[in-house]
C-alpha cells in the first residue's frame, strides 16, 4: 500500500469544511502540523502490504440481529422540544437552508 503524500494545509481546510468546522489561520497551521505528525506515525500501518488480509469492522462476528415489528412507546413531544434550541408550531426551527438535500 503506497503511503499518501504529506497532509497539507489545503487538506485540513477541506476536511474542516466537510466536518462543518471553521478554523482560524492559526488553528489551521497548528492542526496541519499535529495531524501530519499523527499520520506520519501511522505510516507503520499505511505502508504495510496487507492485500491478503480481510478487514475487521466488528470485533465480534454476529449476524442477523433483528427486532419484531412492534410499536414501542414514543417520547413525550413537550419533553423533547424543551431541549430544542428553537421551536415553532411543534417543529424544530432552523435558519434559512441554502441548498436542497443531496
Amino acid at each position: 500500500m503506497s503511503t499518501p503524500e504529506r497532509l497539507s494545509r489545503d487538506d485540513v481546510a477541506h476536511v474542516a469544511a466537510l466536518a462543518r468546522l471553521e478554523l482560524t489561520e492559526e488553528e489551521l497551521e497548528r492542526y496541519t502540523g499535529q495531524l501530519a505528525q499523527v499520520l506520519e506515525h501511522a505510516k507503520d500501518v499505511s505502508s504495510l502490504d496487507l492485500s491478503g488480509v480481510a478487514p475487521t469492522a466488528h470485533a465480534m462476528a454476529v449476524v442477523n440481529v433483528l427486532r419484531p415489528d412492534e410499536v414501542r412507546p414514543t417520547l413525550d413531544r413537550a419533553e423533547v422540544l424543551a431541549e430544542a434550541p428553537e421551536v415553532e408550531s411543534d417543529r424544530f426551527r432552523v435558519p434559512r437552508i441554502l441548498g436542497e438535500a443531496p
Binding site: D90, R91, R93, R96, I97, G99, E100
Partner: peptide, 11 residues
Amino acid sequence: IHGADYSLVDY
C-alpha cells in the same frame, strides 16, 4: 426552499 425565511423540521 428558495426564498424561504426559515424552515421547520418534523422527524
